Computed example of a mutant assay.
Amino acid sequence: MKMAAINGTMIHYREDGDPDGAPLVFANSLGCDLRLWDQILPLLPKGLRIIRYDKRGHGLSDAPPAPYKMGQLVTDAEQLLDHLEVRDCLFVGLSIGGLIAQGLAVKRMDLVRAMVISNTAAKIGTADLWQQRIQAIEAGGVEALADSIMERWFPKAFRETPALHAWRNMLTRTPAQGYIGCSQAIAGTDFMTPTSGLRLPTLAIAGSEDGSTPPDLVRETADLIPGSKFHLIRGGGHLPCVDSPEEYARVLTGFLRETGHV
């Protein structure tokens, strides 16, 4: 396990693959840690330098008191990549990780040469919606929202498997301050204008059964970036790298090859 002092917070990260390979960076969704990507990693091409990290408030990273701002989360990613001496990565962000991807691509063109924005948007939800969720967590912890979150995350067939319990446990063990802080960051973020100014190879991935960021929302964000590609995983939920790992890895591998990253 590797830790780095980043932006005033201890951030947990992991590197796999070839340390001299082209960097492929993953940013996780709200309520998940870097294990989100475990199933697809063995299915990706060899020779990549794969970097994953737990954003603040999640996994083994510190959970400072809320609120957090999206600018902090973007700076966390930026400073971690600077710490690791990464340039020209392909950045994959899912949900809040996709917001981080957009913010980082706008801020540091030298860090991100291409990106995958998965199950995300330039603006996710409304301030009122996020405030309602924050109040529910303040009253009853993350457990209070766990069942409704599972319904939004996963298609019905996956929810009937034992694997669901692992993801529910990961969610409910997320520190309340971390979940609330990141929720506040999402609530305050509208990247419609800055994302529309991006000009880099972009792949948007959506799941047809995603109850958090429906396909039309993902496609709307993809359409902001000229030349972007959109892929719909039929039957996939909000975390298709979990419920549809083979298709997710195949699509990601195709994009890696198209962009000359492998």
Rank of each mutant, 00 (worst) to 15 (best):
residue 250 R to K: 13
residue 228 S to P: 12
residue 37 W to R: 08
residue 71 G to S: 15
residue 7 N to Y: 00
residue 216 D to G: 01
residue 126 T to E: 03
residue 146 A to K: 08
residue 67 P to G: 10
residue 168 R to F: 07
residue 189 T to D: 10
residue 170 M to G: 04
residue 33 D to N: 15
residue 38 D to Q: 10
residue 169 N to Y: 12
residue 220 E to R: 04
residue 174 T to L: 10
residue 211 G to C: 04
residue 75 T to V: 03
residue 58 H to Q: 15
residue 13 Y to V: 08
residue 200 L to F: 08
residue 53 Y to T: 01
residue 123 K to C: 03
residue 135 Q to F: 02
residue 84 L to T: 01
residue 194 P to W: 05
residue 179 Y to P: 06
residue 51 I to M: 11
residue 73 L to W: 13
residue 53 Y to Q: 03
residue 117 I to Q: 14
residue 136 A to L: 14
residue 53 Y to M: 02
residue 104 L to E: 07
residue 198 L to D: 06
residue 154 F to N: 11
residue 146 A to C: 11
residue 72 Q to Y: 05
residue 66 A to N: 08
residue 159 R to K: 13
residue 97 G to S: 01
residue 55 K to S: 15
residue 193 T to R: 07
residue 188 G to W: 00
residue 246 E to C: 09
residue 224 L to S: 01
residue 68 Y to K: 09
residue 19 P to D: 10
residue 231 H to K: 06
residue 237 G to K: 12
residue 50 I to Q: 14
residue 211 G to N: 06
residue 233 I to M: 03
residue 138 E to R: 07
residue 220 E to V: 02
residue 109 M to G: 14
residue 77 A to H: 08
residue 210 D to E: 05
residue 136 A to H: 08
residue 173 R to G: 06
residue 37 W to L: 13
residue 261 H to A: 06
residue 112 V to W: 09
residue 71 G to K: 09
residue 174 T to C: 14
residue 177 Q to P: 05
residue 261 H to C: 05
residue 129 L to P: 05
residue 14 R to D: 14
residue 18 D to R: 09
residue 159 R to A: 07
residue 53 Y to W: 06
residue 259 T to D: 09
residue 133 R to C: 00
residue 187 A to M: 06
residue 243 D to T: 02
residue 162 P to A: 09
residue 207 G to R: 11
residue 20 D to M: 08
residue 89 C to P: 11
residue 68 Y to F: 13
residue 205 I to Y: 11
residue 250 R to Y: 04
residue 13 Y to P: 10
residue 9 T to N: 11
residue 203 L to S: 08
residue 6 I to E: 10
residue 29 S to E: 12
residue 162 P to K: 13
residue 210 D to C: 07
residue 193 T to G: 07
residue 233 I to F: 00
residue 197 G to E: 05
residue 130 W to Y: 04
residue 89 C to G: 12
residue 106 V to H: 11
residue 77 A to M: 12
residue 2 K to C: 06
residue 214 P to M: 02
residue 53 Y to C: 02
residue 96 I to Y: 03
residue 241 C to I: 02
residue 31 G to D: 13
residue 66 A to G: 08
residue 97 G to T: 02
residue 93 G to F: 06
residue 262 V to S: 13
residue 36 L to E: 14
residue 128 D to H: 02
residue 219 R to K: 15
residue 244 S to A: 15
residue 121 A to N: 13
residue 26 F to Y: 10
residue 3 M to D: 15
residue 3 M to C: 09
residue 96 I to H: 08
residue 177 Q to R: 10
residue 195 T to E: 04
residue 181 G to V: 09
residue 125 G to S: 02
residue 46 K to L: 10
residue 82 D to A: 15
residue 92 V to M: 01
residue 19 P to F: 05
residue 6 I to Y: 06
residue 67 P to S: 12
residue 62 D to G: 15
residue 155 P to G: 05
residue 47 G to V: 00
residue 187 A to V: 03
residue 212 S to R: 03
residue 111 L to A: 03
residue 83 H to C: 09
residue 138 E to K: 07
residue 63 A to G: 11
residue 41 L to C: 05
residue 224 L to W: 00
residue 148 S to I: 12
